[in-house]
């Protein structure tokens, strides 16, 4: 599928390049903007980012694959990130992760058939004081219980 940045996003990327002595530094932000517009970082997004920043597609791909927050395949409408690192694990992170897997019938890196949810088991999200936690898209839900986590999913359709 062809991909082209919207005019507005072109301007956002341009503004980002101004922060640095080298345009290339805007690659992380540009990939985010591409992901925002396209839903995930496809080959076409990579190419568009590379063209815009005058780097090779391989350089842009290298960055996209190094960092875990770029979706290298389509994600669900609600992307769930459940932390199972130590502080969360000590307070039931795995129970929540397992309950969600069971309820949605998907596991790490998968998307539900209806495209509503995708699930990712993540490393520490910096919310250990509110463990266990999960993020639904950009919102953190802390001090979770299994029941609460499942209830949150009910509200997302």
């Amino acid at each position: 599928m062809a991909f082209e940045f919207t005019q507005e996003n072109v301007a956002r990327i341009e503004a980002e390049t101004k922060k640095y002595p080298s345009k290339k530094s805007a690659v992380m932000k540009a990939l985010y903007i591409g992901q925002e517009q396209n839903g995930w970082v496809s080959n076409e997004v990579i190419k568009a980012v590379a063209d815009r920043l005058e780097i090779t597609p391989e350089e842009a791909l290298g960055v996209a694959t190094f960092y875990t927050m770029y979706h290298k395949k389509p994600a669900g409408k609600y992307h769930l990130q459940v932390c199972t690192n130590v502080s969360c694990m000590l307070r039931g992170g795995y129970e929540i992760y397992d309950a969600i897997r069971e309820k949605l019938g998907i596991t790490n890196g998968e998307v539900t058939d209806d495209g509503v949810f995708s699930l990712e088991e993540v490393e520490c999200m910096g919310a250990c004081g509110g463990a266990p936690m999960m993020a639904v898209n950009e919102d953190f839900f802390e001090n979770l219980t299994k029941e609460e986590a499942l209830r949150i999913l009910e509200t997302k359709k």
Binding site: S22, K24, M28, Y32, I55, V63, F66, Y67, T68, M69
Partner: peptide
């Protein structure tokens, strides 16, 4: 502001600089 993208290693100072330069961290 420079925003990371999910890599613990970018907290290591030289990795952080690679990341700001627009490279793998």
């Amino acid at each position: 502001l420079h925003v990371g993208a999910g890599a613990y290693i970018c907290g290591e100072e030289s990795s952080l600089m690679s990341s700001i330069e627009g490279k793998r961290g």
